[in-house]
Write a protein that binds this DNA or RNA. Structure first.
Length: 278
DNA sequence: CCCCAGGTCCCGC
DNA sequence: GCGGGACATGGG
């Protein structure tokens, strides 16, 4: 399937730490799971190519990659950021926020706490492989909350979750008892949505913002992790040791309904060294 | 041996 | 409400 796309950067989108199920291959294509279908995705110029066994509707892929969103207002904010060069984000222009599955985002970001992207991807892969094999699935996909709820905690530990194993399992158990809770969150305003997400075990304010942003496309979220804390302190607080809470409030107020997008560009750029290099 | 990674939890104040 | 340590695991 070929999908025309303007102002899109597939590599920056999939490498920016918002989704953990895509692996870059030698030829530059990405293998992963798109809308529940294992597939291969690559970009040539202004065209996205998707190869999968089952047929997918182009409008669903467009929606998944948020391709119909006009990024110009985001770029206006990015140009005003006090970096040395106003075009500092040129190499990642076209980075977009994916509309991924909300359960998968919630599960993945429980794994993300005090962890690094490389290892989160590894645990994600282990979860897909173990539970797909166990259920004898023909196509490997991320396990449902029901599957996680029913397994043994020691299995999750063996897979590599460490001390986060009981957090993920208890969260899955809650969802299997309250199956409509994710749609309740979907229909909530920011403050109440965060309050509800934060009630899951292993989820604090930072992960809750990630879940709201990536799992529910809540663009007014502004996750502040160690990378964001560093870059924001440098840009706006004269390198003073201001708290995460204060940086979070600052970003949300400054960028409003686009805070999540600005955050994604800042986070990816900080982590890859695009911003602030000698 | 150390420190770090898309933090959270739990404790004492 | 804020500060500090513990927490699994793997890489540098």
């Amino acid at each position: 399937m070929n999908i025309p796309c303007k102002d899109f950067n597939l590599a920056a989108t999939l490498d920016s730490g918002q989704v953990f199920g895509f692996a870059r291959e030698e030829n530059g294509a990405y293998r992963g799971n798109l809308l529940g279908e294992p597939c291969e995705v690559w970009q040539i110029g202004d065209t996205v190519h998707v190869s999968s066994t089952k047929q997918m509707k182009p409008e669903h892929v467009r929606r998944y990659f948020d391709l119909d969103f006009d990024l110009s207002s985001v770029y206006t904010h990015l140009k005003e950021i006090p970096a040395s060069d106003p075009d500092w984000f040129d190499s990642v222009r076209g980075l977009r926020l994916i509309r991924q599955d909300s359960w998968e985002a919630l599960a993945c970001f429980i794994l993300s706490s005090n962890n690094n992207v490389k290892r989160i991807q590894g645990i994600y892969k282990n979860l897909v492989e173990y539970f797909s094999r166990r259920a004898r699935r023909q196509v490997p996909v991320f396990p449902s909350s029901g599957e996680i709820a029913k397994t043994h905690e020691r299995i999750l530990r063996q897979i590599g979750l460490g001390y986060r194993a009981p957090f993920l399992q208890r969260s899955a158990q809650f969802l299997s008892v309250n199956p409509d809770y994710l749609s309740v969150i979907q229909d909530s305003e920011y403050e109440q949505a965060i309050e509800r997400i934060i009630s899951f075990p292993g989820i604090g304010p930072k992960v809750a913002d990630c879940v709201f942003l990536y799992g529910f496309h809540g663009l007014e979220a502004f996750p502040v992790d160690v990378w964001m804390l560093r870059v924001m302190r440098k840009l706006y607080f004269k390198n003073r040791g201001v708290s995460e809470k204060r940086v979070h409030a600052f970003g949300r107020k400054k960028w409003g309904s686009l805070a999540g997008y600005v955050q994604q560009y800042l986070f990816h750029s900080a982590r890859t060294g695009i911003l602030f290099r000698p």
